[in-house]
Design a protein around this nucleic acid. Structure first.
Length: 495
RNA sequence: GCCCCCAUCGUCUAGUGGACUAGGACGCAACCCUUUCAAGGUUAUGACCAGGAUUCGAAUUCCUGUGGGGGCACCA
């Protein structure tokens, strides 16, 4: 590792639930910081009081920790460059806004929203691009000062150069050049005194010594503005990387709330919190998200966070939009579930049994793990496969008790023979029970499917279950015998 | 309408002018294994958006078109 340590930041605004896109941006920031031995910083961009949603900052923090993306500096843990919540940095933005005005790179604007709306509407009818018309751009400084002193409401706008062009450089996309006449005198400070993103983020990135910025491609349009602001201050620019948005699974159109509602019907979502509840584990989720937009090479696709840190390379990031593929999330989740230790997996699935109302003894839980782990795609799959282990009595559908291509009478006969054999055994460990049962199959001239099918339904109450012999060993002879008796009774009633 | 970005199998991607008969992963299909369901193994199907240009040679560079995406707020 020869790179210089990177300071990277994840700077969400607490206005909604944390989603896939934010998670990936956070992840790349984290990966880069860890890879270079630098710092990963969480900054809360909460200057928009109107869109603020209580609780979402905590959700963001919880989500980051759940994903395993622990930060070095942040609002709840502090750091050398705090505070890390923009609403706690009010004076800082005031100072830098003033500075830009003094440098004549910004100016106070007294236009009302009514006037601005009217100007925009007129421009629209004239088929012009909507933009600020420069009404207050050349106001004399002393007149501006007088109006401010008299209490008039105003905003501070950036004085965008009228001539020439601006070239900004993005690591993934190369240089992007825009004619300055297409750029606007954007508002840097709102009339309520709070800064807009344009000012706040640039100031904070500078003050917090951010060296690399990952952000969504929605910022590409204002990218030249930001570069101009930084240059107006005379600061050094960070390295910019604009990540693309996620598209619908079909690849047509971007992932939206509508699609997310569709996704949740088959057990998926783009919201991190939902995904956690749906039984996805952070290891799988992170692996999946990482590979949408990053080519990890031709080696192994299933990666742990540490392996990703090792392999991460910003020169292998892709600028093109990626369609989300939930089927692949399932795959990664299953793979990572199988990589968990038995103890770890047990701890993660236990809550699902508990929440479903079962009382769980840890000894049984641990025994179940080896026989269900390769069957789990999501953690909640443990229920259909193994909930019956914790039931006193299983519900049996008599129709399912009838063996394939057999009558109820034949099935009852088979069940009785199974019963006789199992009952005679000292215990039902896999080692002692399998051989006699195999013999029975041969003696009866039936298929394993037919015989084991009857036994499976009798013991588990379901047609799909973990392997039978292992399962019987876990539930024990007493219960198997009891359930077999019950099954024989049910079959007899059908004759 | 204007500005900007993007473009390789169905999807995520490898590819940085000759090693490309375009590689890998997911999915799909077949087979093997098998007591159900999985997992695992083997094999198969499958792509350089179109048209021009540069070059001895283009998936790779440049133009144009097309398609997709983002932006044009006192939101981030």
């Amino acid at each position: 590792m020869t790179e210089t340590p990177v300071r990277a930041r994840f700077a969400p605004s607490p206005t909604g639930h944390m989603h896939l896109g934010s998670a990936r941006t956070a992840l790349y920031n984290y990966l880069l910081a860890r890879k270079t031995g630098g710092q990963f910083i969480l900054r809360i961009e909460d200057t928009d009081r109107k869109r603020f949603m209580p609780g979402t900052e905590q959700e963001l923090i919880d989500g980051l920790h759940w994903l395993g993306l622990h930060y070095d500096e942040g609002p709840d843990i502090g750091g050398l460059f705090g505070p890390y919540r923009q609403t706690e940095r009010y004076e800082i933005y005031q100072e830098f806004a003033r500075k830009l005005v003094n440098l004549d790179h910004a100016f106070p604007c007294f236009c009302t929203t009514e006037r601005l709306d009217r100007v925009r509407a007129e421009q629209q009818t004239r088929k012009e691009n909507p933009h600020y018309d420069g009404f207050c751009r050349s106001l004399a400084p002393d007149e501006a000062a007088r109006r401010i002193a008299s209490g008039e409401k105003y905003v501070i706008r950036f004085r965008m150069p009228k001539e020439g062009s601006t070239t900004a450089n993005d690591l993934l996309r190369g240089s992007i050049t825009i004619e300055n006449r297409n750029l606007d005198d954007s508002v840097l400070m709102k009339s309520d005194g709070w800064p807009t993103y344009h000012l706040a983020a640039m100031v904070d990135d500078h003050l917090m010594k951010i060296s690399h910025v990952f952000r969504g491609s929605e910022w590409l349009g204002t990218f030249p503005l930001h570069v101009n602001i930084i240059r107006a201050f005379g600061w050094e620019e960070p390295i910019w990387m604009h990540l693309s948005v996620f598209l619908k699974p079909t690849g047509k159109g971007k992932m939206s709330k509508r699609e997310s509602a569709e996704a949740i019907k088959d057990g998926h979502s783009i919201f991190i919190k939902d995904l956690e509840g749906l039984g996805f584990i952070p290891e799988g989720l992170v692996n999946w998200a990482a590979l949408m937009g990053w080519g990890a090479g031709e080696t192994e696709d299933v990666l742990s966070l540490d392996e990703m840190i090792e392999k991460f390379d910003i020169t292998h990031l892709t600028p093109s939009p990626a369609a989300v593929n939930f089927t692949k999330l399932d795959y990664f989740n299953g793979e990572h579930i199988r990589r968990l230790t038995h103890i770890d997996l047990a701890g993660r699935i236990k809550p699902y049994f508990l929440n479903a109302g079962y009382s769980v003894d840890d000894e049984t839980l641990l025994k179940i793990i080896p026989i269900i782990r390769e069957r789990l795609v999501t953690l909640d799959d443990c229920l259909p496969f193994a909930a019956w282990f914790f039931k006193e009595k299983v519900d049996v559908n008599p129709l399912e008790l009838v063996g394939k291509n057999l009558t109820a009478a034949q099935s009852a006969d088979v069940a009785r023979k199974i019963y006789a054999i199992l009952d005679s055994l000292p215990d039902l460990s896999h080692a002692v029970s399998e051989a006699p049962m195999r013999h029975l199959i041969v003696d009866l001239g039936l298929s394993p499917n037919q015989v084991f099918g009857i036994l499976r339904v009798a013991v588990t109450g379901q047609t799909v279950s973990p392997p039978l012999f292992e399962s019987m060993e876990i539930v024990g002879k007493a219960r198997v015998i009891e359930r077999l008796q019950n099954a024989i009774g049910l079959l007899d009633k059908m004759i």
